[in-house]
Design a protein around this nucleic acid. Structure first.
Length: 423
RNA sequence: GUGGGUGUGGCACAGUUGGUUAGCGCGCCAGGUUGUGGCCCUGGAGGUCGUGGGUUCGACUCCCACCACUCACCCCA
């Protein structure tokens, strides 16, 4: 027995409609705001992520699916979506086009980590990426866009947390101060924090260990060390959010795990434990395009995990609308009848009626049961009488309403299709 | 990478002082009026009890190892 690889998931027919619905809603929300879709490869040169995501990050250090292809090229399955999009922009010269660029994408992401609730080795990320604006208006645009998706799905059980970690310059100063503060207490701090101190000191701020909380409380915060420009940017952003009636909470301990963020970082947080507590997260990454070899173009983006979102919707008892998959089932009990059914089905499908016919040569009872299981909207039994009189009884499974309909002319078939659609 | 939990037909489970044909529910297939579903009844298919060793006259039940899944941590969507 071959099983699915660890950390992957089968989306079964009974659940696919949820994915389709979320995708449809998300794409429509973004389209309404002038965003365009972009699609990039599933794998990229390893170098792209090493430079984009950051050499110091855990994603690059221990979580990437990296392999050599037969031409000895080092490739990596996307661990996140942003670097790939930035590469595509530079490579295709979109950075020379109209600004701002407002893009969205839906892409699988791969990270080699131990799976747990809401966390997989392959997951789908819906992300929004914008380029060209250094104004806080763009943060509001991006936050507003992803919020509109959640609104449209009826999900509001989150709090927007926001913070500024400063630009390269003021962050460097801040990290020095932070390390100086922690230096004296390194023996009191948990093992993880010791590692953080060395590798990524900013992350000291989101340690959840009980013993570290008190020290964390007293630690200096990024906002206290912002340069004038960064401070102004953040203040304006808050004003704009207020004016947009977007509710948020400043969280001085909010930092993010990917190196490319600058100034604004934000997360939509829920009450859930563990990985599920983040609905989506993002921020500004002004240096990334240049870092990857393009022009110095400022950027803001956000990513949302589809599996996360679906689990959260379920936990919040939010039901997504289930479409009618099958409009009509045509039952037959002989090969001759089946031949006629094939013909009738072809014409009705051309009229947009989702139609299924028997392919098992089963009894009428078995076929009715099957139509019931498949939640067919209605059924026609096509027997010798019907074929001879060119007239069928259309039965609606739920209401049990029945209609006598002639199937002799194309016009009558159109009528039949109308009846199915309108009931 | 670290720590905990669990592993019995497609799914959810019962099955312990170890005893000989391994059970139930749902699902699936067929039949119960030869042209009609959802309820009910009957029958059927389907399991080397995660895998490999060990203890024993005998193991789904005890021991060991491995594997898988799962939850939490690190990290992250």
């Amino acid at each position: 027995m071959i099983n699915r690889p660890k950390g992957t998931k089968d989306v079964l027919p009974s659940d696919v409609y949820k994915w389709q619905y979320v995708e449809k809603v998300a794409k429509e929300c973004l389209r309404l705001r002038g965003f365009e879709e972009i699609r990039t490869p599933t794998f990229e040169s390893t170098e792209l992520f090493v430079r984009g995501v950051g050499e110091g990050s855990d994603i690059v250090n221990k979580e990437m699916y990296t392999f050599l292809d037969k031409g000895e090229r080092s490739l990596t399955l996307k661990p996140e979506g942003t670097a790939s999009i930035v590469r595509a922009i530079i490579e295709n010269g979109l950075d020379n086009g109209a600004m701002p660029l407002k893009l969205f994408t839906l892409t699988p992401c791969f990270r080699y980590e131990r799976p747990q609730t809401g966390r997989f080795r392959e997951h789908y990320q819906f992300s929004i990426e914008t380029f060209g604006s250094s104004s806080p208006l763009m943060e509001v645009e991006v936050i507003g866009a992803i919020k509109s998706v959640l609104d449209a799905l009826g999900f509001s059980n989150y709090i927007i947390n926001i913070n500024s970690i400063g630009c390269k310059e003021c962050r460097k100063k801040y990290v020095d101060v932070l390390k100086k503060y922690y230096y004296k207490h390194l023996d009191e701090v948990c093992e993880d924090c010791k590692v953080r101190y060395e590798k990524n000191a900013l992350r000291l701020l989101d340690c959840k260990n009980e013993g570290c909380q008190k020290l964390k409380e007293g630690a200096p915060k990024p906002r206290e060390y912002l340069c004038d420009d960064c401070k102004k940017h953040f203040d304006e952003l808050l004003k704009l959010l207020d004016a947009s009636k977007i509710r948020y909470r400043i969280n001085d301990n909010l930092v993010r795990g990917i190196d490319y963020y600058s100034r604004t970082v934000f997360e939509f947080l829920t009450e859930e434990k563990g990985a599920l507590n983040v609905v989506c997260g993002g921020g500004r990454y002004d240096g990334l395009v240049e870092e990857l070899g393009g022009k110095p173009i400022p950027s803001v983006g956000v990513g949302l995990g589809i599996e996360h979102l679906l689990m959260l919707l379920e936990k919040n008892s939010i039901e997504l609308p289930k479409p009618v998959n099958l409009d009509l089932y045509i039952a037959t009990t002989s090969l001759n009848e089946s031949l006629k059914a094939v013909e009738l089905a072809r014409e009705l499908r051309a009229l947009g009626v989702a139609t299924e016919i028997d392919t098992m040569e089963r009894s009428l009872k078995a076929q009715m049961k099957y139509a019931d299981k498949k939640e067919a909207k209605c059924v026609i039994i096509l027997g010798e009488d019907e074929i001879n009189t060119k007239s069928v009884t259309l039965k609606f499974m739920q209401s049990k309403k029945e209609y006598k309909v002639n199937i002799d002319t194309h016009q009558n078939l159109q009528k039949l299709a109308e009846i199915i659609k309108n009931n």
